[in-house]
Design a protein around this nucleic acid. Structure first.
Lengths: 202, 202
DNA sequence: GTCTATACCTAGATAGAC
DNA sequence: GTCTATCTAGGTATAGAC
């Protein structure tokens, strides 16, 4: 009996686990955390409820993993845009747009990450997630202030406001999901964000 | 046997119910919705768990009543300020400050109303509550735009942003609860709100 | 390693005594 | 009308067969 897993074994395990996480993410995006029971998630992944515990010690651990994966992707994307080329104001504008666009493209997931009722362990992750967003925005705002492109301000407050504002607008969008409304929403949203940071109106 | 309740009877019932709602509100503000079990609420009100069902058909109904009362008070206060004397920008500034100040004075309740995990019935009330806030802010912004005090903008977006921004800042305040920090926070918050609406910086 | 069946716990709701 | 005791449902987690 081998006392070390073969690469193939590791891969198969990993794959099964990955699959479980991926399906669980879909379920959460569709029905929310509270309705994503172990049974429902296992069904979606095509395994028995009991088998979930081969991969995660508890439901909370699985939920946290789902959250971290999804949130991590979003933070990464936003970070790339905010650290990319261009002046601070331009990057801020693009960052808000990317954030919002991605959320609109998968609104269920965005809601799960930003606002949906969730167990305490996920709530803690969410707080950390929002702080990372905040930190990213705050950095760009600070750059803008230093370069003179933005007026003096409390960058942390502005960053928190941007996170909250975008979340609020996305979670309960005013218009229905008509075609074209999304683009208008994005334009209004970025305009609001720039005003919020004190950038001169274009 | 009287087929109609006497005024005294009605009063006593009402009082008991009022008392239950008031205590339940305190419990929710302290420990959040998820920890506010029927037992905990009944204990706080000095009655047995079973007696709760003399006043409300379900826990959800009680929770909704608690939410409506508390949220209704906040909306009323904000409405009075926003509809009070002064120009639109001035009222907006005062409204934001009042909103935030009240939230800081009872942060537990504010968190329960704005963000704390809650059952679906309460979630629906929260959505309605935020919409009312939004409508109030949007009205003032629209006035400001019409009077020329504010630049052209999508007032609904700005209003949603203000609600989200204030909530975000209050729910996870950056500084600790040092004395004096609250006043600085309020000043930065109102400044941000005015920028967000496009008011010329003072 | 995965399945079936089940134990167990929490918390909302109810019944009947007083 | 209120209390005590209990029922029940939903859902997490585990045991043991295959």
């Amino acid at each position: 009996m081998a006392y070390r897993k073969t690469p193939a074994e590791i891969r198969r395990l990993t794959t099964a686990k990955e699959r479980l996480v991926a399906r669980a993410t879909e379920v959460v995006a569709e029905v929310g955390w509270s309705q994503a029971s172990v049974t429902a998630v296992a069904d979606a992944a095509g395994i028995a409820a009991g088998s979930v515990y081969q991969h995660f010690p508890s439901k909370a651990a699985l939920a946290v993993e789902v959250f971290r994966r999804a949130a991590g992707r979003e933070v990464e994307v936003l970070g790339e845009v905010l650290h990319g080329p261009g002046g601070p104001v331009e990057r801020l504008s693009r960052g808000v747009e990317v954030f919002a666009r991605r959320a609109l493209e998968n609104r269920g997931l965005a809601y799960a990450l930003l606002a949906a009722p969730a167990e305490p362990a996920v709530g803690a992750e969410r707080l950390a997630f929002r702080r990372r967003y905040r930190a990213l925005f705050a950095e760009v705002v600070r750059e803008g202030v230093e370069s003179g492109a933005l007026p003096a301000q409390n960058g942390e407050i502005t960053a928190a406001a941007l996170t909250g504002a975008i979340g609020e607008v996305l979670v309960d969008p005013l218009g229905g999901p008509e075609d074209g409304a999304a683009e208008a929403l994005l334009a209004d949203l970025t305009a609001m964000a720039l005003r919020c940071a004190g950038a001169p109106t274009a």
